[in-house]
């Protein structure tokens, strides 16, 4: 067992974990915070997306021991206009992917605001590209939605981005 200290939604948590335990299982099974979802458990779906010091990551591929001293934000710690926009635009049906979608979208908007390019950004662009539907879909491609609520998800993000 290894002792790790992780700030989760602003609260310092001290945990004894086996090195093989993922950050996702630490959140769900050790801390009882089940808002972060386990979909594929292999980095292919994005349901487990959380923020590590503000950057989005797949918590299923993160070992908790690697995040000792880091600050993690999960859906339980988020109060953001995107949540209400997802509801209004029908950006979900079953809702299982939604916590990951929300965490991912918050970090994605932040990346965009910092000028980070995407695969569909014109290479010569130096300023932040306009956040078109194509840009949103490319930047959010790490979050799958088996219900296929993508149109609502993209609209909700576009609306909040335009505010």
């Amino acid at each position: 067992m290894v002792e790790v200290r992780i700030r989760v939604n602003g609260v310092e948590e001290v945990l004894d974990v086996e090195p093989r335990v993922s950050l996702l299982d630490t959140l769900r099974e050790h801390l009882g915070m089940t808002g972060t979802k386990k979909g594929c458990d292999q980095g292919a779906c994005g349901a487990c997306t959380v923020l590590a010091d503000g950057e989005r990551i797949n918590s299923c591929l993160a070992l908790a021991v690697q995040y000792d001293g880091r600050s993690i934000t999960t859906i339980e710690g988020i109060d953001h206009p995107l949540q209400e926009a997802f509801v209004r635009h029908d950006g979900l049906q079953c809702g299982y992917c939604t916590p990951g979608q929300i965490c991912s979208a918050i970090a994605m908007l932040d990346e965009h605001a910092r000028g980070a390019p995407s695969a569909v950004t014109e290479p010569a662009a130096t300023a932040a590209p306009e956040l078109t539907g194509e840009e949103i879909r490319e930047r959010m491609s790490g979050n799958l939605c088996r219900c296929g609520a993508y149109n609502g998800i993209a609209e909700a993000i576009a609306e909040v981005a335009a505010r």
């Binding site: 980095g43 797949n58 290479p123 959010m140 491609s141």
Partner: peptide, 23 residues
């Protein structure tokens, strides 16, 4: 990288997802 080797920036951005590229 974006200025001198745009092909490298684009190649990386075409791999995986935003979350995975952060890790």
């Amino acid at each position: 990288i974006r200025e001198r080797y745009p092909v490298l920036s684009q190649a990386i951005l075409h791999g995986a997802s935003g979350q995975l590229r952060n890790m």
